[in-house]
Amino acid sequence: MTTLFFSDYEAGETGAPLVIFGAGGLGREVLLLIRQLNASHPTWDVRGFYDDVAPATPTLAGLPYLGTSADLNATAEPLAVAVAVGSSASRAAVVSRLSSPHLSFPALVHPQVVLGPEQRIALGEGCLVQQGCILTCDISLGRFVLLNLGCTVGHDAVLEDFCSLMPHANVSGAARLAAGCYLGTNATVIQGVRVGEGSIVGAGAVVVRDLPPHVTAVGVPARALKVEDK
């Protein structure tokens, strides 16, 4: 995985074409994020939405539905893509299908989220960081990590590829979330705790000890309900 410190990213050229994969509610929220970015620094020309399941209407939030992942792979021009799929596993599956060399996946961070060079925040491609998030310092976010509204991430935390934090989830200092972890709304992982690959932490749960891979954990303190079949 290649990551760059956030300060190494440069804003794209004005009018750079971008599409959103995901024609549901999160897709419309990501469209709002992009419009908020454009209001701060005009960068993206948003062309519309793609999804492998066609929406009920031909337009969403004033933009057209453009087709499936196969249609997107057929693009003949350089095109930025925001993958707006909330499920970690589903987002990874979508990314695996988007194979065209013309596609790129910029990190999109709300303009009011503070990320300065002194914080040493590393981001992988395709990260989405929504309004109200707070990240402190020496943090690594892998590829296609989603931080929904109002999340917090403490010092030395590591969130590996395709992790998903729903609104107001909290990851404390030196915690580590393995690839594909999903934290529900208001879930908390306390300092130094590790959450195994593909595990799901339910809404409002508090993880106070390490969790193994591929479990669903709920409650305060969080306890695993089951081991999911692989």
Rank of each mutant, 00 (worst) to 15 (best):
P212W: 01
P58R: 05
D210K: 12
P167S: 14
P64V: 14
V53Q: 01
D161T: 11
L149D: 01
P167Y: 11
S87E: 02
A187Y: 08
L128P: 09
V206Y: 01
S90V: 05
Q119Y: 11
S90E: 12
A157I: 00
V19A: 14
V153I: 09
F6W: 15
G219W: 07
D229F: 07
R97W: 05
C137K: 09
L149P: 01
M166T: 12
Q112E: 13
N170V: 15
S40Q: 13
L79V: 00
T188D: 02
W44S: 10
S90Y: 08
Q119S: 13
F144D: 13
E160A: 13
V195I: 04
R194Y: 02
G22T: 04
F162L: 14
G154H: 11
V208P: 01
L225Y: 05
V153A: 08
E77T: 15
S104V: 07
N170I: 09
L98H: 01
N73R: 12
F162C: 10
H110Q: 06
C127G: 14
S164L: 00
A89W: 09
G154R: 13
V220W: 06
L103V: 10
P17N: 07
T2L: 07
P42T: 12
Q131T: 12
T14R: 15
G124E: 02
A54R: 15
G184V: 00
I139N: 06
I121V: 14
H168C: 14
L103S: 14
G132K: 13
V53K: 00
A203H: 05
D161Q: 13
R91Y: 09
G12V: 10
N73P: 07
T136W: 11
T68F: 03
G24I: 02
I134P: 03
R223H: 02
G184N: 02
A74G: 15
A89D: 11
S88I: 09
V201M: 02
C163G: 14
E10P: 00
A224G: 10
A178R: 15
P42F: 05
Q191C: 00
V193W: 04
M166V: 06
H168V: 10
Q191E: 10
D45G: 05
L146R: 12
F162Y: 15
A84E: 04
L165F: 01
Y50Q: 06
F6Y: 12
R28A: 01
F49W: 00
A174K: 09
M1V: 08
K226D: 08
S104F: 02
D8W: 04
I190F: 00
A89H: 15
V220N: 09
L159V: 04
L98F: 04
Y65P: 15
T57Y: 02
K230D: 06
T43I: 12
P213F: 04
T14V: 10
A76T: 15
A54S: 06
P17V: 06
